[in-house]
């Protein structure tokens, strides 16, 4: 499973996850008496844009790139961090919902916040935009590629998250003939769509359609993949296999037509209803197939509120 993400937003998870779940526990700090001349090295070495300043275990300030630049520009004498740091530090507690962190990052335009333990106000970690995105994706059980996150600059991703604009891509590999694992992709997708806050009836329709297509892949082909793109207005599902292909698609679409072998019938499939069920569940469906090469089933489910049908369309 190697789905990649273009611009995630997942507000519900913002409430479910706590700051501590996604914060960076790798504490890089300086003391108030650390000379300014050393700050640059620490920032660069750790590729960070700000450092918490700690005095006897307590957070007393933050020194960031901007402070360093100002100090360099002023060509002032070397001095201690304490003189240049910001003392009014905006912090978060480990037990706050992640959405607070997201909102604060937006509100202040900062890139990071120190995180404190509520009981003793001791520094527990730092939270960054990248850390938040990584945490959200992990929670969704989406494997992401590091470079994707960097590529779509974190701030850009953030705007989409706040603006409620989504476009997620999920990709599942399916192994043919493996009946014990058949349906796992449909099941995983269903959970993900639920977490994304998709309307339950839409989730159900998409899940049934993917399940039927996945079962066909497992039964008739050796391997294939499922690619799902979730946009604000629709879900696009593509199920592609490198199987034997379908000689007569029109015939295959007829309810009751099945070439499933006996062993498949004994496992509860082969009613010849699958493609027909897909048709009833989705708003648009295209099947293309080349003999000896494979089959591709493309389906669209509209997710706009007004197009939600609360029932799967009646039996044919």
């Amino acid at each position: 499973m190697t789905p990649y993400v273009k611009a995630p937003k997942i507000r519900e998870l913002g409430y479910e996850l706590k700051v501590r779940d996604v914060m960076d526990r790798n504490l890089i700090t300086v003391q108030p008496e650390t000379p300014m001349s050393k700050v640059r090295g620490v920032l660069r070495l750790n590729r960070i844009s700000g450092i918490p300043v700690i005095d006897k275990g307590k957070l007393v300030g933050v020194i960031c790139v901007e402070d360093l630049v100002n100090w360099l520009m002023a060509r002032a004498d070397n001095c201690s961090v304490e003189e240049k740091m910001s003392k009014n530090v905006v912090t978060l507690y480990t037990d706050e919902p992640l959405i607070h962190a997201i909102n604060k990052l937006e509100q202040y335009g900062f890139f990071h916040f120190p995180v404190l333990e509520r009981e003793n106000r001791e520094l527990a970690g730092t939270i960054t935009r990248e850390g938040i995105i990584r945490g959200l994706l992990k929670k969704l059980e989406i494997d992401y590629r590091e470079e994707e996150i960097r590529h779509y600059r974190a701030s850009h991703v953030f705007e989409d998250m706040i603006a409620d604009k989504t476009s997620l891509i999920f990709q599942y590999y399916v192994v043919g003939q493996d009946f014990n694992r058949a349906g796992e992709s449909a099941s995983a997708l269903k959970k993900t769509l639920k977490r994304l806050g998709t309307h339950p009836e839409i989730v159900r329709r998409a899940a049934i359609a993917v399940y039927e297509a996945e079962m066909n892949l497992v039964i008739f082909a050796r391997s294939g993949e499922i690619i799902v793109k979730v946009d604000p207005n629709q879900i696009r599902i593509e199920v592609e296999d490198s199987g034997p292909g379908i000689p007569d698609i029109e015939k295959a679409m007829q309810p009751g037509y099945s070439t499933a072998p006996d062993w498949v019938r004994e496992l509860g499939f082969g009613a010849g209803m699958g493609l027909n069920n897909i048709k009833k569940c989705v708003d648009e469906m295209n099947v293309t197939s080349t003999i000896g090469k494979g089959t591709r089933v493309e389906m669209y489910v509209a997710t706009k509120k007004e197009s939600v049908s609360y029932e799967v369309k009646g039996t044919g």
Binding site: I208, Y211, E212, M215, R265, G268, F269, G270, A271, G272, M273, G274, N276, N277, K280, E311, V312, T315, G316
Partner: peptide
């Protein structure tokens, strides 16, 4: 007993 039938039946 046939799962596609279940999926089209259950509403």
């Amino acid at each position: 007993d046939l799962m596609s039938d279940v999926l089209s039946c259950v509403q």
